[in-house]
Design a protein around this nucleic acid. Structure first.
Lengths: 228, 228
DNA sequence: CTCAACCATTGGTGACACCATTGATGCGTG
DNA sequence: CACGCATCAATGGTGTCACCAATGGTTGAG
């Protein structure tokens, strides 16, 4: 457990910028940050460096710390994604992320069908089965359903054999989690969705990449449709 | 112009870790870094924070700065990608990245067919045409071909209307660039590839998303095949 | 073998020197 | 009086140092 002590400053400023409270062109100063958060210039500087690394700000002598326009941001960084999902504009963010899922997850599933270990294949089928049980029992909006849903997608991404897909597993988890916590999940999921989840698990289990890809495409298409 | 780089330390350590010279579990100390690069503890700490933000290391009191295993890295960060492409293992990195392209670019092309501006549509077809000319003239491995190829893919990604795809445009540019600079491009590109590039440009120009997606899929599949 | 004291190493602070940039001041000229 | 140019001081990031607090591995004692 990281003592997560270093910088609540980073969190606060990050959310403030990604949330639009601080718009592009706004300037900060180290002293101002230090004064507001009651920290020394050193930690203000460190937080600023982190923000700079995320592409949120840029600093120069005499000019201060300038907030950058959103197209300079590292929008693929998990922290930025989380901040943006927490602030206003989370709807558009969710749409963008789902579009990314639409692109990546089917291929990841196909890869997983080739590369997954026996243990993973078993867990996938078991997870999909339990998911169906919970869904048909009307717990599609529950905590356990959520966890298993995340687990299934995470297993698929991480078994794809592609580290870039693995890295996107966190993103997918955040998206799924955000979707239910925002109350967008029905207690009784579409039977189609449950079928598709089971289909992808079974397809991966028997090594059928094409079927896995197709089933996963159905899942994400359904999700995308639910967002409007 | 970024005020030079106050931290060549970041570059050096980043490459050393991503290149495998410093393996997971290795420990560094601030004083050690400061001594090697002749900088103060403060800037060593800043560089360390950046590295921590990239998921390359983790630091704690008394334990030092510990290098993390590669599955904790922020592999989607442009800096990490660049470092890994420069070091050993660039072949596997290229494969992973191409797989990501395979997932993203077709969908991005489909989106671009819906959202691109008139100016972009024009530039796309012009670029594809010039690409064909150069390719048929045997300059498929030349600098101008490379630039136009990057330009075409970048235009498509950035016109997709999805900021996440836009952010991946840099990655695609790096991959394409790396491929030719590693001498993997033939002077006479496959006619199929030229056809596909022109097809995707024309499809986007006339707003045919499905055709654009299919043509782009052909392009990336061909690239993937060329990598073995 | 267990536990407590030790101490190395990071985390954090404040003060200081340095330097580039910028905006204002001031001088000269028409 | 107005305009332009050069000089200068204020500002704010960059880097260094010395210092103290917290912490957790190490080691030595019981």
């Amino acid at each position: 457990m990281p003592p997560v002590l270093h910088s609540p400053v980073l969190e606060a400023l990050g959310r403030r910028i990604t949330g639009g409270e601080l718009t592009a062109g706004a300037v900060l100063t180290l002293d101002g940050i230090g004064a507001e958060f009651e920290v020394s210039r050193t930690v203000a500087r460190e937080a600023m460096r982190l923000l700079e690394g995320l592409g949120l700000v840029r600093s120069g002598p005499r000019v201060g710390i300038v907030v950058l326009p959103h197209d300079a941001w590292n929008v693929l960084d998990p922290r930025v994604i989380e901040w943006r999902l927490a602030g206003p504009g989370r709807a558009s963010q969710l749409r963008s992320l789902t579009e990314l899922r639409q692109a990546v997850e089917p291929l990841a599933a196909a890869c997983a069908a080739r590369g997954a270990s026996a243990a993973v294949r078993d867990e996938l089928v078991a997870t999909a089965r339990r998911l169906r049980e919970l869904g048909e029992a009307g717990h599609g909006d529950g905590e356990e359903f959520l966890e298993l849903d995340i687990r299934l997608h995470e297993l698929l991404m991480r078994s794809s054999g592609n580290e870039l897909f693995s890295a996107l597993a966190d993103v997918v988890a955040v998206v799924i989690s955000g979707r239910t916590h925002l109350g967008l999940m029905p207690a009784h999921p579409e039977p189609e969705a449950l079928d598709a989840h089971e289909a992808v698990a079974l397809a991966v289990a028997r090594g059928d990449g094409a079927a896995a890809e197709e089933a996963m495409a159905r899942i994400v298409r359904e999700v995308r449709g639910a967002l409007g």
